[in-house]
Design a protein around this nucleic acid. Sequence first.
DNA 1: AACACGGGGTA
DNA 2: TACCCAGTGTT
Length: 362
Amino acid sequence: MKNKQARINGILSGFNRKEFQHDLINWFKQEQRTLPWRDNQDPYRVWVSEIMLQQTKVDTVIPYFQRFIEKFPTPERLAEADEQEVLKAWEGLGYYSRARNLQNAIREVVSDYGGKVPDEADELGSLKGVGPYTKGAILSIAYDKPEPAVDGNVMRVMSRILYLEDDIAKQGTKKLFESLIREVISTEDPSSFNQGLMELGALVCTPKSPSCMLCPVQDHCRAFHEGVEQELPIKTKTKKQKRVPYAAMIVINDQGEVLIQQRPADGLLANLWEFPMVPLADIDRSHLVHWFYGEYGINIKPGGSLDKIKHVFSHLIWELEVIPGAIEAGELDHPRARFVSLEELESYPFPVSHQKIAKHVH
DNA sequence: AACACGGGGTA
DNA sequence: TACCCAGTGTT
């Protein structure tokens, strides 16, 4: 413990905190982008935006945020919505547990906190989906509290400013940055300080070829002075994804309805909908008919492949072979599957991979 | 301390 | 390709 504080003191010796705060905050106030969640300090809107922005670019989030707030303008409206409706609003944004956790947490806010987003760190941090970053972001941006909000931007920017060679891919490194931010954050305007750090990372202090000549805190940057800004931060590589081939089936009944099913409540793409599919490692292509009958109680006659879809996730790659199946005989018998009209299909939340499959449904 | 968890954009 | 992005929960 003492060791750690000693290191922090060492890192910050000779660092002009007051001037750094001033230069950063002035730049932020001058150059910040106009973004929908910056209209006001409504903690609910700040919260929604912070969840959406996790691992997701600002430009991607903007239209989702607008639609989401329009549909669920208050904690109460989100709390009372069906989960399927929330997932539909999240459709295409990815990391769907964010949406389910957000609704779960908002329901707790409505039932336990009278609909008011907590402004206390422990209460906020105990809510589903609110980790150290989001907690600090809400406290500083919505409630003007001097709490660190350390994300990838902040670690990159501060690695360069302070010339730190800690591996930012390691979990523990984030704690170091949180301790450092606690020491250097502006207590007068923690919101602009935290947002300024992130805005700087997004606009100036970018991962590749940072625009140091335009940087408002260039004077404070040790990496720039040493000419090593391109070498920082240190980040170990992620391992590459595993390929998994699937057969995905388009099965349409005599009423023109297509067969879909809801995915399990846990794991990948939880509770979203999909076309029937099976890993081609589990069964051979020639056993498709047998597998399909066993699973759904319907005899089909597979047609030729309509498409091969490659879909990349962060940790795996789906290779989907789209195969039509003509119904020969049988009655659907499956707890999570149903036939729906093409019109109804639109109201179900599908992952992007299966939206690609849906393009072959006519 | 690792790994699961989406999807889109960039060089 | 490979990396990056306003991270969190689980094991």
